[in-house]
Nucleic acid binder design. Sequence first.
RNA 1: GCUGGUGUAGCUCAGUGGUAGGGCAACGCACUCGUAAUGCGUAGGUCCACGGUUCAAGUCCGUGCACCAGCUCCA
Length: 641
Amino acid sequence: MQIDLILPDERVLNLEGPLPVDDAIAAVSEGLLRRAIAVELDGEILDRHSEIKTSGRFRILTNKDEESLSVLRHSTAHLMAYAVQELYPEAKFAFGPDVEDGFYYDILVDESFTPDDLVKIEAKMKELAKGKHPFIKKIMSRQDAADYFAEKQQDFKVEHVGELPEEEEISFYEVGEFVDLCGGPHVADTGMLKAFKLRTVAGAYWRADETREQLQRIYGTSWFKAKDLEAYLVRLEEAEKRDHRKLGQQLGLFGMKEEAGGGLAFWYPKGTVLREQIENWWKQAHRERGYDMVVTPHIFKGDLWRTSGHLDFYAENMYTFEQDEQTYVVKPMNCPGHILIYQDDLKSYRDLPQRLAELGTVYRYERSGTLHGLMRVRGFTQDDAHIFCTPDQLVDEVTKLIEFSRDLHAIFGFTELTTELSVRDSANKSKYIGEDEEWDAAEASLMEAVDRVGLSVKRMEGEAVFYGPKIDVKLKDAIGRSWQTSTIQFDFNLPRRFNVEYVGADGQHKHPYIIHRALFGSLERFIGILTEHHAGEFPLWLAPVQAIVLPLSEHFRDYGEKVVEELRKAGLRADLDAKDEKLGYKIRQAELQKIPYMIVVGAKEQEAGGITVRSKKSGDEGSFSIADFLNRALDEIANKH
RNA sequence: GCUGGUGUAGCUCAGUGGUAGGGCAACGCACUCGUAAUGCGUAGGUCCACGGUUCAAGUCCGUGCACCAGCUCCA
């Protein structure tokens, strides 16, 4: 059989096949044989243990290719399992894939792994790696595979074999004494595994099922070069330095109080200033776009939540209490409140769209283990709005929303966004409320709006919530992590349950469409993201303290006070460091507090009636008149840089 | 909620069953200072909470709470 391999430079190799991958590599270049990790054939990664059976586009992967890393990491996972098997012969192995930046393996053993154990396992891995054990691929029949693992008492593997599709070839990889059910691909031998490190151990369920065995998951990372491993560990440290929980504490922004309970944030004075800046901008931006601000109560009677369906579907996440023989609910969402306001009078089609917005603080009971700083809390403020509109207003409204979300992100320095469109599972329509035509109209208007704005959108089949399709926006932060922020959701449920209506041009009463949307998502979470994005160095317009005046000694304190007063009068958030310390000390404190401008005043400045400016960004900037500095700072604030 | 880890002064962290410690911060004194930490001194503790073991518990055991890493969940 002739096999044609098309190389990246469009050259075509004609080979007699099927042939081992190594032979194909050698046909391209003998030299590459030493450096090749795997090959790609028509998008599929084949390792050097495989055979080439078909023609296609062919590419050789070396340690410079991104794809090779996942091969390396997957192999490192096997090496780790091998080491664990050596140290814990009774261990049962589940899954051990490569993941972003590393790999893990889920393992069942009686005792629990300690950090010390990880050190031992890692040492064993190093020892085994030096043995340059080749990875050897084997094929077995389904029955032999099941028997083999049954004999080894590898229960998870037996279960897994039973679940593989009938037609699938069952392959194994053997490395030293460790044999694993595995489709590959793998590196040639363990000698390639040099730069790895075991990181943490955590619980995980077999098949991610809470009712099944809980296993121990060991996470590790693996790289081709020690230098890359080092760089990765530095990157982790960087991320740690940006941790909003740590910065929130250091910069006096916010904190959690054990006495108050988990998942409840306290906003300190500086954090409150930051929040206010964001809220003020938000309110202004919404008024400009035709939103009406409303405020609704934090608790209301259970009946309302029965009407909305929350008591039936969302009860376990709600805080409720009894008063006057009534159940009251602390609101987990703002929708019912906004609907009540909408319904205060009978709306005409001429009144629509009606956009009701609220910075609505909601409380949801979240399982304790899910709480995480400001990113996942029990009490948070949604930048919520509900848009009541007619069918022919849909596309316009959604278009405006997507643009609004994009503008809002840009103001805060996020320009890299991804968008997901979640639609219903068309094979299982009964799970969802609403008529086909509503779903189709909603989806069509979402798509049309996305097209108009020129966004690319990822379609997520079956990811819609039961009451309507939605668009979610994710941003990418300064160190490449993505976070979900905006959500734009259709709701076919609440208009029915509350009998929300408007009178159409034909005099008929109709249900309006309700679009539920939040752009920041949660203010707490957004500020957490913002803090990590800027590593605590907020742009001037957001900085809690914008300038701090540093008198050189106590002789210049009075002048310093005068300067502070002038800066404040001009609208700047300025403080005085009146401490009896040297300039170096005060600068260090201001730097640690990440204050954008440090204003030094001494004899020279007092005499001239000016100031010396040091900026966080570029250090000492020399003498300024107060007016010149103010111009510059106010300009910077106005531009939101 | 589950698995594992952690909880000691405002912060950050030491602490071997036998009198509770360092650094930073705070406060006082001296210095009166020019671009990332001046020196000396003083004060500061429910060792997360509640039980238990022990002559004796920050330390060992149990329960609860909070936090951390994951898992799970995320109308």
